[in-house]
Design a protein around this nucleic acid. Structure first.
Lengths: 220, 220
DNA sequence: CCAAAAGTGTTTTCCGTACACCCATGC
DNA sequence: GCATGGGTGTACGGAAAACACTTTTGG
């Protein structure tokens, strides 16, 4: 834009997606073993270059389909990092996203060349490209987002009991809540409604089943 | 990253900076008339390509120095847009930033080739590259940020009266506050301290002068 | 003396938190 | 009958909101 001719840089731009789920009361992210250099063989977040004619959101959504087999889940742009791959001489920009998926909806594509696996966010393996920083940042954003939005819908099945919902909150925020206060808060938000059904899940009283009134992002 | 060979896209990546200030009880942004195609002659946000060896933050900070003559102000990455310049065949990614400057610190560089001017955020001229969307997004983020951080320090001079500070909050949030409640809230945050001075500003009682204890970003 | 902004406390409302017991079920 | 999670109401405390008058100055 300026008229002078200082040497400029055309960094390679790619997307990277932090796909969260909650399994076994732990927040987990999807990692993939890299099949190409650099960092071949290391675990990394799903990501890659944009296809021809593709926008950033589209590329991130495509990764979700390719790697987790899900679409129409909560997906939000996170941050653009310029320092994840110091090996790129022309510089690199990684536009990161975070996504929330219900573990029961996920279908990991069977692969010959590389593998995909869920890792608890606090027990990541060695990862390429400082991807642990990206996960950390995404987790922080997710924790904030839980406070003032309904995005948790994207981590839940269609129908669920409030106990299950509470466990998801507790897993991500890494703290426990009083059952009565939690229910009061959630119900007062008016984001869930009773289905009328109950479901027996074990050797105890069956739970009333709820669903989200709107399965789309809402800010309180 | 994948082994297949679908055609990929290497979008041009640039930075764009929304520089906010408050003048005359209005939030304003710095715009520049474009001296080059495309969109020559239209107003646009300061921005451009990265210089060789430069990171995103560095490029944004450089724009602040070049266009507003300020450094060490609050600067935060905002969002990366992929649809601001539909004319670019290879695609374009604009990494946007927002900055907060005290109007009295700004020294707009005198230019032959193009002009810079402050515009109230609600009275933007016709702008290039959908920059109005970027401004709108930045303003929203700024409004949120005011609620839970001290970033307003970057919009204020070193020393100021609480009435002046309240006006800045009111200008940006476009609402008025009760004077007593405002003062209570600010003082209880413990982010400002009295200098001990007072300053007479007009035909009324002089105001006690305060300063920010820490002129760096803090989250409440 | 008048206009203009500075400065000051109390009351009420609302929300978040703390807290303990009974219920329905499977085994 | 016992272990397990489901389900319920009340009381307290702190923060935010509502609200009106006096002070100091310049002109």
């Amino acid at each position: 834009m300026s008229a002078d001719a200082r040497p400029t840089r055309a960094p390679l731009t790619c997307v990277v997606v932090v796909i969260f789920t909650v399994r076994d009361n732990h927040p987990e992210v999807l990692l993939i073993t890299r099949s190409a250099d650099p960092e071949r063989g290391l675990w990394a977040l799903p990501g890659g270059l944009l296809l021809d004619g593709e926008g950033l959101d589209m590329a991130a959504a495509r990764k979700l389909v390719e790697e987790a087999g899900v679409r129409d889940v909560y997906l939000e742009q996170l941050y653009s990092f310029d320092d994840l791959d110091p090996s790129a001489p022309e510089g690199s920009v990684a536009v990161s996203y975070f996504a929330l998926v219900d573990a029961s909806m996920v279908r990991l594509a069977p692969r010959d060349e590389w593998q995909a696996a869920w890792y608890p966010t606090n027990e990541l393996p060695e990862v390429a490209f400082a991807n642990d920083r990206v996960v950390e940042y995404a987790l922080e954003r997710l924790r904030n987002k839980l406070q003032y939005s309904n995005v948790v819908y994207s981590l839940m099945p269609e129908e669920f009991g409030l106990g299950r919902l509470q466990k998801v909150y507790e897993s991500i925020l890494d703290q426990t809540f009083d059952k009565r206060n939690f229910r009061k808060r959630i119900l007062s938000l008016g984001i869930v409604e009773e289905t009328g059904d109950v479901r027996a899940e074990g050797a105890h009283r069956p739970a009333r089943i709820y669903r989200f009134i709107r399965r789309e992002p809402t800010t309180f």
